[in-house]
Design a binder for these strands. Structure first.
Lengths: 102, 102
DNA sequence: TTTTAACTTGACATCATTTGTCAAATATAA
DNA sequence: TTATATTTGACAAATGATGTCAAGTTAAAA
């Protein structure tokens, strides 16, 4: 299982793009992108959206990877992680049926 | 489906405890507890642990409620929320099998 | 109704985390 | 070596989380 960072780095190198080039498109310092690719920093949602654009990923797929990874790290240390995810699913359903959509 | 805030308030009133009393046990201002109970602020993990103690909840149950609620709010607006949770489950399994336990 | 106690509200302060910059160090490869 | 790409770590700025406080409101007792 690859991390988002690994996925990004692989694709960037495949496309022959430099850190500098991609970072400039994201409007961040290349140091940050370097760290994102090595899982030393977490990308922002905006970073992910721009990365999907320039690296030709399906935007939703990359966002799913990103958000699920964030959640996984939040709860991975807990014994009851899978219980949390099950309950979260119910709560999401409940919220969706009760939220006023914008 | 009740929120953590609603669960806490119901139990506190049932036990006949005042905001002031419970807040003092949590070592926070009663204003915060008031807001937590009305979902205007999010409790910290430490708040939840102490609440479980003083309000006689099973600690793990309350933590599961708390964490799943946090996650649900993070992703509820997204169309692909349930996809995120499914992928997160896989990622958690992967992390658990690859993490060095402390 | 007046008084008292409980709770709520909002402005603000403090602190931690996140996100970023920069320049020097290191690696890679021409 | 020289040039280019990447990494590193110290630091700064921005954001978000957490808390205090005092005044306002509500509700119920006297």
């Amino acid at each position: 299982m690859k991390t988002v960072g690994q996925i990004i780095r692989a694709k960037r190198e495949n496309l022959g793009l430099l850190l500098r080039q991609v970072a400039s498109y994201l409007d961040i310092d290349q140091a940050i992108l370097s760290k994102i690719e090595r899982n030393e920093r977490k990308p922002t949602k905006d970073n992910i959206i721009k990365l999907a654009e320039i690296l030709e990923f399906d935007k939703e797929d990359l966002l799913v990877q990103y958000m699920s990874e964030k959640i996984a790290y939040e709860i991975a240390e807990e014994d009851y992680a899978s219980k949390v995810l099950k309950v979260a699913e119910q709560k999401v359903k409940y919220l969706k049926s009760n939220l006023i959509k914008n």
